Every structure is written in C-alpha cells, then in structure tokens.
Simulated scan of single mutants.
Amino acid sequence: MSVSDLIEPIGAADGAVTLPTADTWMQGRTLYGGASALIAYTHAIRKFTDLPPFRAGQVGFVAPVGDEFELRSEIVRQGRNVAQLRSEIVSDGKVALTAFWLFGTSRDANAVHPAASVEPSPGKPEDSTAVEPGGGPAFLRNNYDVNYPHERTAKDEPIIRRWVRLKEPSGIDPVSELILMGDTLPPSAARIMQRPGPISSINWSFNLLDPAPVTRDGWWLAETASDHADQGYSSERLKLWNADGKQMLSGIQAVAIFG
C-alpha cells in the first residue's frame, strides 16, 4: 500500500481521522514512528499552506497510535523568516504524539560547512545485496526494500547502516518522504543488549540539511548509532544520506531498553 494512500484521509481541519490502510504500517500495537510523524506533519502543512521551506522537527512518541485518532495543529509563532508549528495526535482523549515543526526561509550563507562523507564507503545501492527476508517488523517487510551496504559493521558494534527504499513510489513530496524514512531502522542498541527485551523509541529530533532532498531510484542510506547506553536507555544518532553519499538528515533519539 502506497504512502499516499496512508495519508489520503488527512485533511486541513482539526478533528477525527480514520486510516483504512494503517494495518500495513503497524509496529506491534502502534503505527511505526516515521509514519505517525508523517501524519502529524501532513496535517500541519495541509492546514497551513503558506509556509517557508521545512527545516527541523521534534517529535515525542507518547503513547500508541492506532487507526483512529484526532489531529490538531497550530501556529505557535510566525515571524518574517521563521514559522514554528505544533501538531498533536490524540487517542482516546489523550495525547499520543506531539510534534514541533520549524520552517524557515533561505538566506545568503554566512557560514558554510558541508556534512562529512559517510565512512566507510557504503558503495552504490544498485550494487548492494538484499537483507535476508523474514526478519524485522511487519511494516518494514510490507513497505521497504532493505539492502546491506558494501562495508558492514561488526555484529557487536552499536551501529546499523542499511540502504532502504520504498517498495512502491511514495507519491508524496521529498520532504515528507524523508520524515517517513528517517526513523526506519531499529535502534542500534539492540546489537549490544545483554538479554532479550523490547525497545521503544521515546522521541526523535532532526534537522533537514537540504530543503529539497533528492536521491536516485528511491534509495537512501539510513544509519542508527548509539552514543551511550545505560540504565535502560540509549542515546541514538539517526542519519540519512542520498544515493550519491550526500547527507540529507541529521537527528538524535532517546530509546527505552527493557528486559
């Protein structure tokens, strides 16, 4: 089921929404985080259409999001160059997701510092090898092609890096696609867990490095990497590069580790 089908029921008005195709995007009892963030973002840009280019997002995954909920968005502040919006997904009368969106006009650069190239080289996605079928959550199997990069990290190293793309063309704008794709991989702390147990994303804060992201043949290189894990939590870095190795998204996430 395409992404455009998932978000088709979302209109410009606040209020109740039912998603007929939510089952293909579920991760356990909740919508996959990237899908629920996309839903909140879609409502914001459909309600407020005269916005500068998107720059950054802060998303709190508060409670499970199912196929029926309420959406609401508001402008917190709109200045000459920057607009800041807040969106919420409300389930059973309680906030299930809260998001803060930042939009800003482009200005003449007064500082230029390109993001570092990905190392080691992941190779080209068209030359990569598909991950063995059958693993991972249902939303990943249903909707994504997932391939190994040319150089694979060690199994006990808390870094996961994969080439990912949607099985079907998304039918949505490139920024929305990156919001959907940026939280695709599992937290890398799963690689260093000492005993089995569930993992749950708590939040996700990210910056879009190019307001008009592009790639080739739908492929993005996604990475999750734990900076620190202890006391039941992991601080994870999330990055996305395009097929030519240019970084498009940089983020950080707090993850709860159970068991």
Rank of each mutant, 00 (worst) to 15 (best):
S2D: 04
E8L: 05
G11D: 12
A13D: 15
L19N: 02
L19W: 12
T21K: 14
A22L: 09
D23W: 02
T24E: 12
T30D: 07
T30W: 01
L31E: 02
G33H: 08
G33S: 10
G33M: 11
S36W: 04
S36K: 04
I39D: 06
Y41A: 00
T42L: 09
R46C: 08
F48P: 03
D50H: 14
P52L: 11
F54W: 07
A56F: 00
G60M: 12
G60T: 07
F61L: 07
V62P: 02
G66F: 13
L71T: 13
R72M: 06
R72E: 13
E74K: 15
R77P: 01
R77N: 13
G79I: 00
R80T: 15
R80G: 14
R80Y: 00
N81S: 15
V82S: 12
L85F: 09
V90A: 09
S91V: 15
D92K: 15
V95N: 03
A96L: 08
W101A: 10
L102N: 12
L102V: 13
L102P: 03
F103E: 06
S106C: 06
S106F: 06
S106M: 13
D108L: 01
D108R: 15
A109P: 02
A109E: 15
A111W: 05
A111K: 08
V112T: 11
A115P: 05
A115C: 02
E119Y: 04
P120L: 02
E126P: 06
S128F: 01
S128Y: 09
T129W: 04
A130I: 06
V131D: 04
P133K: 06
G136H: 08
A138P: 04
R141E: 15
R141Q: 15
N142S: 09
N142L: 05
N142M: 06
Y144T: 08
D145R: 10
V146E: 07
R152V: 15
R152T: 13
K155W: 05
E157I: 10
P158G: 11
P158T: 12
I160M: 12
I160H: 02
I160F: 02
R161A: 03
R162W: 00
W163K: 03
V164L: 01
S170E: 00
S170L: 09
G171T: 11
I172H: 01
P174L: 01
V175Y: 01
L178P: 00
L180D: 03
G182K: 02
D183H: 12
D183N: 11
P187T: 07
S188M: 00
S188I: 03
S188N: 01
I192Y: 03
M193K: 15
P196Q: 06
P196T: 00
G197W: 06
P198F: 04
S205I: 10
F206G: 03
D210A: 10
P211L: 04
A212Q: 13
T215A: 03
G218N: 06
A222F: 01
A225H: 14
S226H: 01
D227N: 12
A229M: 10
Q231A: 14
G232R: 14
S234H: 09
S235L: 13
R237H: 07
W241M: 03
G245C: 00
Q247Y: 05
S250C: 05
A254R: 10
A254M: 14
A254L: 14
V255T: 15
